[in-house]
Amino acid sequence: MSEISATDARPTLAVWKFASCDGCQLSLLDCEDELLALAGAVRIAHFTEMSRTSTDGPYDISLVEGSITTPDDAERIQQVRRDSRHLVTIGACATAGGIQGLRNFAAEGAYAGTVYAHPEYLKTLETSTPISDHVAVDYELHGCPIDRRQLLEVLLAFLAGRRPAVAGHSVCQECKGRSNVCVMVANATPCLGPVTRAGCGGLCPSVGRGCFGCFGPSQSANTISLADQLSRNGATGELVSRLFRTFNANAPVFRAESERQSARGDA
């Protein structure tokens, strides 16, 4: 623990990791051009990817990455919440359960048995769940990984006391704004863009790929109608189910659609 100057009036920022790959918190370090200015505007009190120096809470803003997959983490998040004035979850793991949320669809221990030689040494929960299933969350920033510009926008908005300018609409709006030709209409490429939250800037369709749904369901995602169209374009239920079961598999809207598609039984 380091000493804090009593005269330092900067708001404090803490970054916490739960079950995750670290990619989202690294987005903070990716803010290269703005990092020094940001470090001047906030005091980074706890961020183990950046510094071993850590100061005790409470913290003005906590960024929480990762999902809850162990009994220990289910306890630890309670303390993070108690120590944080604002708690912002970042990324698909923290907001939806992440790719590890696939365990929620499998028999207990199925994945652990495949990955680990001695899964009996593990002490994990049966499910991978978002932070909001455990504590109150002040703001959720979606994406796998999150977009660093959006992260910066959320931090600046919290510092300025204004609403973050982060869209809840579909990827299509960003895609069309980039003058992309729709890969679904022009090429029958399976694409989750119409039901996925914007934020990536339409990254995959810009290189001719369908959207993978990294940012999770958009505000008014009609997955049933999209899945019907993907089927008309020739996709099997298994394929459509797999499309919805990636980084945001456990997001309720995507989860329901993948289960509906799995039940079609036309693999």
């Binding site: 579909s170 299509c172 709006q173 069309k176 704004g177 039901v195 995602a221 009609n222 109608s225």
Partner: peptide
């Protein structure tokens, strides 16, 4: 509305 994706493509094109 059962079919509409509310994606906004119609307005954008």
């Amino acid at each position: 509305a059962e079919r509409c994706l509310s994606c906004g493509n119609c307005t954008l094109v």
